[in-house]
Simulated scan of single mutants.
Amino acid sequence: MKNIIQHINKAFDHRIRLGIMSVLMVNESADFSTLKELLGVTDGNLASHTKALEAEDYISIEKQFIGRKPNTSYRATPLGKQAFKAHIDALEKLIQKS
């Protein structure tokens, strides 16, 4: 077997990043509170993982105010969608080979 994990994307290694991308793949966008609740993570934990995905250009972040309250929403970028699909395909191939 020749390096069957070569196409697994290290950016999605962490379960929180995997969860963020999973939510964003099936929803047009999600706000901070929704992601926090769905994933059961702390503010700081979610913020650090979204920043890491943003640095890879896998998600985009939009900050705005709704009334007087700040609102942060996230979307998967086209590059992020492509990279995540390739990651899932690699995982499926790994499972099939095992």
Rank of each mutant, 00 (worst) to 15 (best):
D13M: 12
L79K: 15
T50F: 04
T77I: 09
T72N: 00
A11M: 09
I8H: 03
A83T: 10
R15N: 09
K2S: 13
F65Y: 11
R15W: 15
E62Y: 07
A52N: 04
E37H: 07
E37P: 00
I4M: 11
E54M: 08
A11P: 02
R68F: 07
F32W: 02
G80A: 11
I59S: 01
D31N: 13
L94M: 15
I16S: 06
F65E: 03
R15Y: 15
G19P: 04
F32N: 00
D31R: 03
K93V: 11
S60C: 09
I20V: 15
Y74W: 02
K85H: 13
V41F: 00
K85N: 12
F32H: 02
S33R: 07
S29C: 04
Q96V: 13
K36E: 03
D13F: 15
E56L: 03
N3Q: 13
K93E: 15
I5R: 12
L79Q: 04
A52T: 08
A55E: 11
S98V: 15
A86P: 08
N27A: 08
L46D: 00
Q64D: 08
Q96D: 15
R15M: 12
I95T: 12
S33C: 03
N71R: 10
A86C: 09
P70D: 00
L53C: 04
F32C: 01
K85Q: 14
F65T: 04
T42Q: 07
D89A: 15
S33P: 00
A47F: 09
K97T: 14
T72L: 05
S73Q: 01
A52P: 00
D13V: 09
M25R: 10
R75E: 07
I5G: 13
A90K: 13
R15G: 01
E54V: 05
N3P: 08
T72I: 14
G67N: 06
G44S: 08
R17E: 06
F84E: 08
L53K: 04
A47K: 10
K97D: 15
K85V: 14
N9Q: 12
T50I: 11
L46T: 02
T77D: 01
H14S: 12
N71P: 00
T72M: 00
L46V: 05
Q6V: 14
I88N: 09
L91N: 13
A86E: 15
N71F: 08
S33D: 09
Q6Y: 11
L35D: 01
K10S: 11
I5M: 11
I4R: 06
H87Q: 11
I95W: 12
D57T: 10
M25H: 03
F12E: 02
K97F: 13
A52V: 06
T50H: 03
A90P: 13
T72A: 03
G40P: 02
S73M: 04
K36R: 10
Q82C: 10
K69L: 08
L46I: 05
I5K: 10
H7N: 14
P70F: 06
D43E: 06
Y58W: 05
Y74C: 02
A76S: 13
M25T: 08
G67W: 05
K97E: 14
T77L: 08
S98D: 09
F65K: 11
I20S: 05
N9E: 14
K97S: 15
K69T: 05
S48V: 09
S22V: 00
E92S: 13
E28K: 10
L38E: 07
K36V: 00
S73R: 08
T42M: 04
E62M: 05
I5E: 10
S22M: 03
